Simulated assay, not measured.
Amino acid sequence: MDLRQLEYFVAVAEERNFTRAAQRVHISQSGVSAQIRRLEKELGAELFDRSARSAELTVAGEAALAHARNALAAAASVGQAVGEITGLLRGNLSIGMVIGCTVTPLFDALAGFHRAHPGVTLSLREDNSDRLLDDVRSGALDLALIGTGTEPDDLEFLTIISEPLVAAVPAGHELAGGPVALHDLAAHPVVCMPPGTGLRAVFDRVCAARGVEPMIALQASAAEAIADLALRGLGVAILSESMVAGHSGLTALPLADAIDPALLVLAWRPGTNAAARELIAYCRTAFRISADQSSSTAPTTR
């Protein structure tokens, strides 16, 4: 077996789809399939169940995945170690970003890093916050910008935003005019983000703490979509304060008994590689966050 076969195997396992994996590694689907077949022949076992609609790992595939990732990481570390000596960074960095979150400073950081280190290939993937966190922990992603209601205690992080949830309503709405209690909110349809997002986790937690069962009418992954639905009278939007800013037709009302903040954080594993550390430094500058606002040992939306 060779590293290329392991790279394709990991790509298919993470994408759960041969076509998306081929796009990710920049070769044809038939090329990916052929290399996976050669790897399976050499190992003497099928790695994927091809009878399902998605490419699901077999028991043998599950057993091989962690070792394949470790082998690729070890190979990358060889290049990184030499790069640190020569001052030249090479390799690949995989970055995750929560769906529907346009954060210009992150893009600025990526652009600045790319100009300074063209030998490092960058990939960016959107997903919901729960899956992004899982992928950072597993090593499938080097770092990710995620929404959360709690600080992950096993990762290093930069806190980008920490702010309360608000209820957003159009002018003339029955709730307009002051803070909203969760029990009063329960009498109205709610438009919010889906499970797996940081904002939804915070909202679910504060409602459960007060014994409130909100009437979830509609769900959307983008703050703009939620705001537009609320503007049209389809429900009370649950967003963070900054997400409501810029929507002139909506009024942000404090949730009187929901004090837990929603967090937007950049998270990565302890002991990450040199290229990731350099990108994190660019992110610190882009977000204008000093090193003392992050944790290198502690474990810290949408």
Rank of each mutant, 00 (worst) to 15 (best):
A225S: 13
T285L: 07
H183L: 11
V103T: 12
Q23Y: 08
E84D: 14
A258F: 04
S138W: 00
G198H: 04
Q80I: 11
A181W: 12
N70E: 13
Q5M: 11
L124Q: 06
V10Q: 00
I280F: 09
F287P: 02
E241G: 00
G96W: 02
H173D: 15
D134I: 00
V191W: 00
A52G: 07
V98W: 01
G147L: 03
G87N: 09
V12W: 01
P179K: 02
L106K: 06
D154L: 03
A209F: 03
E241T: 13
R37L: 11
P299I: 04
H183P: 05
G147K: 03
C207L: 10
S138M: 01
L72C: 07
S33N: 13
F9Y: 14
G96P: 03
S295W: 00
L3A: 10
S33L: 13
E241H: 10
A267K: 00
M97K: 13
D108R: 12
A245R: 14
R50W: 09
L158G: 07
R24K: 12
P105Y: 10
Q29F: 05
A11I: 01
T300E: 09
T121I: 04
H247G: 02
E163N: 06
L106H: 07
K41N: 14
D127H: 04
R200A: 07
A167T: 10
S248D: 15
V25A: 04
T121Q: 11
A144K: 02
D204S: 10
G61H: 07
S290P: 13
L279G: 04
L47E: 11
S290Y: 03
H247E: 08
A223W: 03
E56L: 12
G139H: 02
A176P: 01
S296R: 14
G233Y: 06
T104K: 08
P118N: 10
A144Q: 04
M1R: 12
A11R: 00
L89P: 12
I85D: 13
R125P: 00
V32M: 04
Y282D: 11
Q293P: 01
D260T: 14
A60R: 11
P270M: 07
A81Y: 06
P195Q: 03
V98T: 14
A186L: 05
E278I: 00
G31S: 14
G249H: 05
N92I: 05
S295H: 06
A21L: 05
L47Q: 10
T285E: 13
L253D: 08
T300F: 07
A275L: 10
L264A: 12
